[in-house]
């Protein structure tokens, strides 16, 4: 490993391995967006102040702008591109459309990833828990009420799927 040079790292994103060469200073959000061309994850503040870059790392929602790509080797990363099954949106994605849980859509990937992490860990959250899960995701369009509604409806839809 040369100082200041590029070094290899294999990122495991949405179940696939991506061996890439990056500088140690490359953040995960930049690696996703530039090296992997997974542009669904948005970069807004680069300082952990907005939540647009939220991805799930080893089951937990995190800000990919404050993670180094080289530091993510061997960790299971899920991005917005990993939620749909083929052409079928996930129940949470469907609920965001149905509830109008966004306007401009720039924070949406992050909102969805935060709620996806919540629903994976707690399939039957209260509205308060849903809201709490997205306190770290700014929506400047102010779609908050509909974001919470989407989380609630997704949880209900997933519960129905479980029963079926």
């Amino acid at each position: 490993m040369a100082a200041n040079g590029f070094q290899p790292v294999t990122l495991t994103v949405n179940g696939s391995d991506y061996p890439i060469m990056v500088e140690p200073r490359r953040t995960l959000v930049d690696a996703l967006r530039h090296d992997l061309a997974l542009t669904g994850t948005k970069k807004v503040c680069a300082m952990g102040d907005c939540g647009a870059c939220t991805v799930i790392v080893d089951g937990r929602a995190m800000y990919s702008c404050l993670l180094l790509a080289v530091d993510c080797a061997g960790r299971a990363i899920t991005t917005i591109e990993g939620l749909a099954h083929g052409n079928n949106l996930s129940p949470l994605q469907e609920a965001f459309v149905a509830s109008d849980g966004f306007q401009c859509g720039f924070c949406t990937s992050g909102q969805i990833m935060s709620l996806h992490a919540l629903l994976q860990a707690h399939p039957h959250p209260s509205d308060e828990e849903i809201a709490r899960a997205v306190t770290g995701n700014i929506c400047r369009c102010g779609a908050y009420a509909n974001i919470v509604k989407a989380g609630r409806e997704a949880a209900e839809a997933m519960a129905r799927q479980q029963e079926a």
């Binding site: 929602a61 995190m62 306190t135």
Partner: peptide, 9 residues
């Protein structure tokens, strides 16, 4: 403190 994401990190 902070947010769920930051608390996870």
């Amino acid at each position: 403190a902070a947010t769920p994401q930051l608390r996870n990190m």
